[in-house]
């Protein structure tokens, strides 16, 4: 277990960050080139004003009709995504790793709050899972990959939670935590998790087209 942990927290940590960053750049650039080759007119439609107006609207809870129509889904989605994003970046233990390794200082969340935010992500995952299995209109669109994606995202949080509290077998869950975290990071550019990269651009495009071409709102 020690040798495995050393490998995961050493070389594989480097590999996963390189894959994540290079993969993300590759996906963004190749999408940019594709658009330029096939749908060049899009660039003429783009507008900063309408882009940011749309992005701003869609990151504000309940600012769109659809969000108001599904309040439970809206609250869950926002809470889930905020916690999913902030917890790993501002977790104290991750900050300690940055500090120890590179002398880089990050602000850290209080432990208790980070614990709650982790539970929010896990609960959100369970909610999305139930939604996929229960709602006919969602189940109809669901494939195995959707379940795998959910598991992939929830796993680092679940194992991290168990490891932090040192439940069951600490060393096992610590090792599994690092592994699942790295798998998720590397998967971001190459799976549908890439909506993390593309969302601002698709939103900006929608906003621009609705704003400057159709003269309508997109929310």
């Amino acid at each position: 277990m020690d040798a495995l942990y050393r490998f995961l927290s050493g070389p594989l940590a480097w590999v996963s960050f390189v894959v994540f960053i290079a993969g993300s750049l590759y996906r963004l650039l190749s999408m940019g080139f594709l658009v330029r080759r096939k749908e060049k007119f899009i660039f003429s439609v783009m507008s900063w004003k309408y882009s940011f107006r749309s992005i701003f609207h869609w990151i504000t809870p309940f600012a769109s009709v659809n969000m108001r129509r599904h309040p439970v889904m809206t609250i869950t989605t926002f809470a889930f995504h905020i916690c999913l994003f902030l917890t790993p970046i501002f977790l104290l233990a991750h900050g300690v790793l940055w500090d120890d390794a590179f002398n880089i200082h990050l602000w850290a969340l209080p432990n208790g709050l980070a614990d709650i935010m982790t539970l929010v992500v896990i609960a959100g995952g369970v909610f999305f899972l139930c939604r996929r299995m229960k709602l006919a209109e969602v189940r109809y669109l669901t494939t195995l990959s959707d379940y795998l994606l959910l598991i992939m995202v929830a796993a680092p949080f679940l194992t991290g939670f168990i490891a932090y509290h040192q439940w069951i077998d600490y060393r096992f869950f610590m090792t599994l935590h690092v592994l699942t975290g790295e798998i998720m990071l590397m998967a971001i550019p190459f799976t549908r998790l890439s909506h993390m990269l593309f969302a601002p651009f698709t939103r900006a495009y929608m906003g621009s087209e609705f704003g400057s071409v159709r003269h309508a709102r997109d929310w």
């Binding site: 942990y5 233990a93 600490y170």
Partner: peptide, 16 residues
């Protein structure tokens, strides 16, 4: 870490 013996995971030193 250097000599490959002794604990390196947080919770092995900071035991609850």
């Amino acid at each position: 870490e250097k000599i490959g013996r002794g604990p390196i995971m947080c919770g092995e030193c900071h035991k609850k």
